[in-house]
Nucleic acid binder design. Structure first.
Lengths: 150, 150
DNA sequence: TATATTTAAGACAAACGACTCTTAAATAGA
DNA sequence: TCTATTTAAGAGTCGTTTGTCTTAAATATA
């Protein structure tokens, strides 16, 4: 799989939050139910995004999580790198260490192009824009389609 | 990681064999030493390729493995699908089942393009051609660069 | 201050990928 | 026919990812 499950959950949660920027804090419990993701697992993932300053959390009653200013401007690439790390965009297709133009593997050049096209795609789309599109077109972000944009 | 380790090993082994089509059977032991891949693990991977008729094996003294006629014409995509399956080229970026134009996720269209560009890249290059290039340019297919094309 | 609510943190467990090892089956050659 | 060589097959091990559970810390409100 291209992206880890953690990363996919992180992306879905980010889109969820980006669609409700008016809100102060959203509870993780509510979000986990809406998105059908295990509460504790989602909490862990959001902690990573909080550690990377893409989100901010608040404990206690009416607490929850929200996008930080940085998070509101984030692209999908920022989320992916925060969770899965940058390896996907730096590593050799054959996993050879130090594969580069000076000592390339047979796939080096072609793979460079593909990697860039993945990166461009993720970098091109910012969260807010995608969430707006998602709401306008009622795009699906849960398996069963139960989620409703609001 | 885009490709599993098994898949990467399978690709490297396929390139190895494609560079010596003159040879009848190559022993897996020799190949595993040349490519610095665990013998037993490589054996398992090659069994998958044999099961998919991309390779043929022969037991006993002077036995080994070789590309089948089908394998000689194979592209990188054939190897990848034989080992990792077709999921990479069919699955939704967010892992949503049945994601398609009728019920798309927000990434559906962009991801379709990326998926196709990966597929095209792998389909464009056949083993024989890549092995020829590899030999001509002394491209690396081991981590330490110890492998010598011949 | 006491209680309820909420995230943080960490231990634990299950599933999977990546190997390792042992035994079986086929086959060449002495 | 016996032995050595080689792949086939399957059980077992180890580490990482995924997911669960419990306890701690923060905080709003009564």
């Amino acid at each position: 799989m291209l992206l880890s499950k953690s990363c996919v959950y992180g992306l879905r949660a980010s889109l969820y939050l980006a669609s409700r920027t008016e809100q102060e804090y959203t509870s993780i419990r509510e979000m986990s139910e809406d998105l059908d993701i295990s509460f504790h697992f989602l909490t862990k993932i959001l902690q990573q995004l909080t550690a990377d300053s893409l989100m901010e959390s608040y404990k206690g009653p009416n607490g929850g999580i929200r996008l930080s200013e940085k998070g509101k401007k984030a692209t999908l690439l920022d989320i992916v790198i925060a969770i899965d790390g940058p390896e996907l965009f730096t590593q050799c297709a054959l996993g050879l260490p130090g594969c580069g133009s000076s000592a390339p593997c047979p796939l080096h050049d072609s793979w460079l192009n593909v990697r860039e096209s993945i990166k461009d795609m993720l970098e091109r789309t910012d969260l807010k824009h995608l969430a707006r599109e998602g709401r306008a077109n009622k795009f699906r972000i849960t398996a069963d389609g139960s989620f409703v944009w609001r």
